[in-house]
Design a protein around this nucleic acid. Structure first.
Lengths: 206, 206, 206, 206
DNA sequence: AATGAATGAGAGTTCATTCAT
DNA sequence: AATGAATGAACTCTCATTCAT
């Protein structure tokens, strides 16, 4: 890498870091280009050499999370079509879980941006909602596939998918925003149990 | 009602209607006072005879939903303390469900505003998040109460409460935004089943 | 006085009191009609039954000070023309001092308004400056008259008059604004001595 | 100086000139940013590249007078502490007079702004009054110092200082506002005589 | 006589984007 | 490649005054 490319890469990284911090702290609309370039240590006009406009850097940042997530979901969907046996199917879900967890852990900040701006009207929000609807659809298909294979109780798969996604959004947004939880590491287990066995006690059903 | 009061009431209604429509369409920040008064057919300064500032009309609109919701939750919490038998407890939850459903059906638009702006940084978002955290807390207590009475499987009540609320937010926001659902009337039943029995089939557990 | 006139007089008094307080506290421009009528306990439109506009009530209030002051100065000027002997001349000045002191003591608040708004651009300030220039001119004539009679050292009477008036404005404004003075009651004596004998010590002159 | 810096300097000068003229003509509050930038020939937003807000340009303009004045007073105060002999003391006052006169002559317009807005309620007026009170205090100390050295008749130094300052304000404001004086160049001498020997004739005292 | 709802011009300030240097 | 000066539309909010009731 030449000195020029190196310099460019450093400035891009500075822009990404500054924009992430400011979008997280103040939201997409309140964080101004002025603030971002000041924090990145470059000039106002230089910003536009790296991104065509303000929306572009936001999309760039969230794509660092959304692209691998989307890829993992699509890989899983494709793999499921060819998965015959139960163990093959389970392997697909295991790999998907691993990939999703990795993507989230590596891009937790982008996840917060994704949750934050998703209901914004205007261009950015609509762009995120297109992604969001896609996720809903893909997860819906995964759920439907499991129901078809009698691995899950039959119900409206879209509602089930969105319930799960919505739960994760709400809890993750609160958690990433600093809301305290008694046993943060147990949140995943609690959700798995909730969506697995439900809340009603077996003997209460009788 | 005299002609003047009548006129005032009509203008207030026009303001409410215009603001609701514009906040829904463009969000709180992009909808300008100028647009609101233009659509309501009044002068710019007249707005400030009805509300002290822009935030006030937003709070007024969302309170039409949040106040009855909060009241229903508080009534339920209070009633639970004196509910001894199982049937009394069930009656409390039934009444709460009824009141919440009624509030939501009568103020669907305010609900959309509530979901939309909840993650906004700045004053409005923070105001909504205070309410939101309150709801989380109240629902958490309701869940904890049921667990204490052995009416629900024991789990972290805060996570359970937030999972339910998050699911409702996500689905309601999509639904109110026009997202199509195959069987909208069955959404409630699906969620009750999901959170009741869970997704795993009984024979898959063995 | 009938009940109607009585009522009117009470409202006028309330308006005067409220306007004086608010003009003193916030200045003419920042004090709004809205604040004044609220404090006076009457309706916004009612204000315009008592005064044609905002400037009118200010002029009304300051006139309570300026009219007697102007009258005292004019009486003195007229009396001086017919005063032949030294003792008659002294009597004229004595009476003028008494009248001015009385006017100021009875309308200290109006005096603060007069000092405060005198340099305001716009209508109110210009109106006050016309009065102010008149005072300068009248006092100049008084000084000139004393010099002509060899009762004062000869100097440019206008400069002397304005120096005296300016000194009083500056000190009175500070005093009325709460600035602390070591011996407030001695201020008058100090000024009389200052303008009488000057600052230079006799033995320093030699 | 490059073309850009040159251009910037020209715009700053245009802003200063326009703001000075408009503040003088209409006062701080009535002169709008819109008017200032129109007269300076720049765009509205460009104003904020030169000054953070409206108050800043006013402070900038008046500081061109107040800073040298304050500096001259502080230099005199410091020099007085080390001045032993009478001739040294006189030299200090002479130099102070020279510096003050120079500052005033070079910034007559700023002086008018200073006098004009000094009694304004609100931020600008309070900012000026802090300066004004500082001047009063410094001049008071100078007067006290002269009295201590028996170079002046003993009297309350604060009252004397404020009388002198008030006289100058009143006369300078009128003069700078275009009020005609018979012999403007003699104003200084007249004041020196007034505060030196006073008005009362020696033989009238006997 | 009294009310108070209504007006609309005008204020200061912010900000994404452009472009000459 | 990099700069940062310049733009101007858009924003929320204030206020003296009018006038139908």
């Amino acid at each position: 890498m030449g000195r020029r490319e190196d310099n460019k890469a450093r400035k891009l990284a500075a822009l990404e870091q500054a924009a992430t911090r400011l979008f997280m702290e103040q939201g997409y609309h309140r964080a101004s280009i002025e603030q971002i370039v000041a924090e990145a240590g470059i000039a106002r006009g230089t910003f536009y050499l790296y991104f065509p406009d303000k929306a572009a850097i936001f999309k760039h940042l969230t794509n660092q999370l959304l692209d691998p997530v989307m890829a993992a979901l699509e890989r899983a969907t494709a793999a499921l079509e060819h998965a015959g046996s139960l163990s093959e199917t389970q392997a697909v879900y295991l790999e998907m879980s691993r990939a999703l967890t990795e993507a989230l852990l590596e891009n937790g900040e982008a996840a917060l941006l994704y949750y934050r701006e998703q209901r914004d009207p205007g261009e950015i929000g609509e762009w995120l909602r297109v992604r969001s609807r896609h996720f809903d659809a893909v997860v819906t298909e995964l759920v439907r596939s499991l129901m078809d294979r009698r691995m899950l109780r039959v119900a409206d798969p879209k509602v089930v998918a969105m319930a799960i996604i919505g739960a994760i959004h709400h809890i993750a947004f609160a958690f990433l925003s600093g809301e305290p939880f008694e046993d943060p590491e147990a949140i995943g287990t609690t959700l798995v149990q909730l969506y697995g066995q439900g809340l009603v006690l077996p003997d209460a059903e009788g």
